[in-house]
């Protein structure tokens, strides 16, 4: 809790009593409980890591916070520029606005348009946020450099890159805009040591800047280095743990 001084009073993210299950209609309405009674906060300046074995529902929680998965019960309150929004009940329009202004998502997989150059892919969220092109380009270039994506690749579309390169492009894209809340979905999986270290450095920089981070890290070394707190997802087990 060494960052206690920089923590904001109000949590950026407040998850309250959230429940989620999947109903598989194609398998005769089979119900797969995912999580129940999920409650935790994330404040600015801290990195909360979701812990627990594979299948415990870590990724589902992250996706519910992003609005990507629906919520069966409970509230997910996020402080945005227009006040607090409950993602569990927000309209698509409100969630889209929140994604533009407040939430950044760094996933493992890049879903980029095939022909757009890497530098443009990376700087797009900054432009969408209102940065001018020069500022956005400079920030994108800085991130790519720190993540060891050589400049000769910046003009190429990332579709042709290796998995690790694509992942680093996606991390840069996720960090380029100034967000109050960053969701990290195993950003360091399959990265080499040098790049893992670069990501850890970037996460530390976000924390220092007062950003609230919520992440999943399978790499225990990285997790221990970045985590302010670990929230054990197994305590939210619903009925039984899905396979």
């Amino acid at each position: 809790m060494s960052e206690a001084m920089t923590l904001s009073a109000e949590p950026v993210l407040a998850v309250r009593d959230v429940a989620k299950r999947f109903v598989m209609h194609l398998r005769d309405g089979l119900e797969i409980p995912v999580v129940d009674h999920v409650s935790f906060d994330v404040r600015g300046g801290e990195c909360v890591v979701l812990g627990g074995p594979s299948g415990a529902g870590k990724s589902s929680i992250l996706k519910m916070v992003f609005g990507n998965y629906g919520v069966d019960r409970g509230a997910i309150r996020i402080g945005g520029p227009a006040g607090v929004v409950d993602v569990a009940t927000a309209t698509p329009r409100e969630i889209l606005a929140l994604r533009r202004s407040t939430i950044g998502y760094v996933s493992q997989f890049l879903r980029a348009v095939p022909r757009v150059a890497t530098i443009d892919v990376v700087m797009e969220p900054a432009l969408a946020q209102g940065d001018d092109a020069a500022t956005a380009r400079a920030r994108a270039g800085d991130l790519l450099t720190r993540l060891h994506v050589p400049e000769r690749l910046w003009g190429l579309a990332p579709a042709t890159f290796s998995g690790g390169e694509q992942q680093r492009v996606n991390i840069a894209r996720g960090l380029v805009a100034r967000r109050a809340l960053l969701l990290l979905d195993e950003p360091t999986a399959s990265l080499d040591a040098a790049n893992r270290a670069a990501v850890v450095e970037l996460i530390e920089a976000e924390k220092a800047a007062g950003v609230a981070l919520l992440g999943i890290f399978h790499d225990t070394d990285v997790r221990d280095r970045v985590a302010t707190r670990i929230v054990d997802v197994t305590t939210f087990a619903a009925g039984r743990i899905a396979a």
Binding site: H25, G67, N68, Y69, P92, L96
Partner: peptide, 21 residues
């Protein structure tokens, strides 16, 4: 109906699940 990524990644209705699958 809803956010495109939610409809496609977390479809609720049987028919939507069928379409997505």
């Amino acid at each position: 109906q809803g956010l495109t990524d939610r409809v496609l990644d977390d479809p609720r209705e049987a028919y939507t699940q069928l379409l997505v699958s």
